[in-house]
Amino acid sequence: MTDAPLLEIEDLRVSFATPRGPVEVVKGLSLSLGREERLGIVGESGSGKSMTGRSILRLIRAPGRQTAKTLRFDGLDLMAQSNRQMRQIRGARISMIMQDPKFSLNPVMTIGHQIAEALQVHENLPRRDLQARVIEMLNSVRINDPERVAKMYPHEVSGGMGQRVMIAMMLIPRPQLLIADEPTSALDVSVQAQVLDLIEELVTGNGMGLILISHDLNLVARYCDRILVMNGGEVVEACAARDLHKASHPYTKGLLAAQPRMQETRDELPVLDRSAGAGT
């Protein structure tokens, strides 16, 4: 790990204009991510975790607005980059894996084509090398018979396979930072573990930084070094993953307790007190 962090965020705010005035969905978030560090961001729907992930890539669409005192990636001030410069960074240096492969892959383009496109945007390669890189990448995300799969369309593969294709697409330009936004919530439990193991292996093998965004506390604890718990646009707790069960904030404790356990003996699950905010 070198001295400068890979990503530094200070006082990040994302707001949306509404008829009743602007609503802040991320309220002054700060974080720093070391090289080869794996950070988990956990929270429920509406906590601002996905908006945080998107704002790192400056992907907040109008009328949303993002501001930050610092948003520095590898010494580069992301807030000062033009749209054109941002496009050079997205995908090539920072990649993002979205939640559902069904909606994120182009349905009318073969898998091989889509992966190749992700690479072509950033690198000029002869066609033969391009094809070789695609096959190699599909191999490394453990797809059997990559030559055949490269010719298939997204609807012809299963959800787990689609997500592995997404991972291949995101990792082929060899980014330094990978943001995975609920990469497995559309998948079965048994496939979930495979996909996350794969992400972990590729991230550590290539010296990438990882930001894993999820609503599943235990899952994040298993795959990350450090965890931020978000609620209502703010970080309510930051802790090392192995200390998660020692969490002190009532919200984190509530989330942990609300999950049914494999050896469940409680008659009723404790419920978060919502009197402060909106109802269920």
Binding site: E44, H215, A258, V271, L272
Partner: peptide, 29 residues
């Protein structure tokens, strides 16, 4: 969400107790 899931599960459990229901539940969890 997890916390909402807890509320719905509690509700289902209470309704079963109160109304003597039989549940056949599909889940992967």
């Amino acid at each position: 969400d997890v916390s909402v899931q807890a509320e719905i599960l509690n509700l289902l459990k209470r309704l079963r107790r109160e109304q003597g229901l039989t549940y056949l539940m599909v889940t992967h969890n």
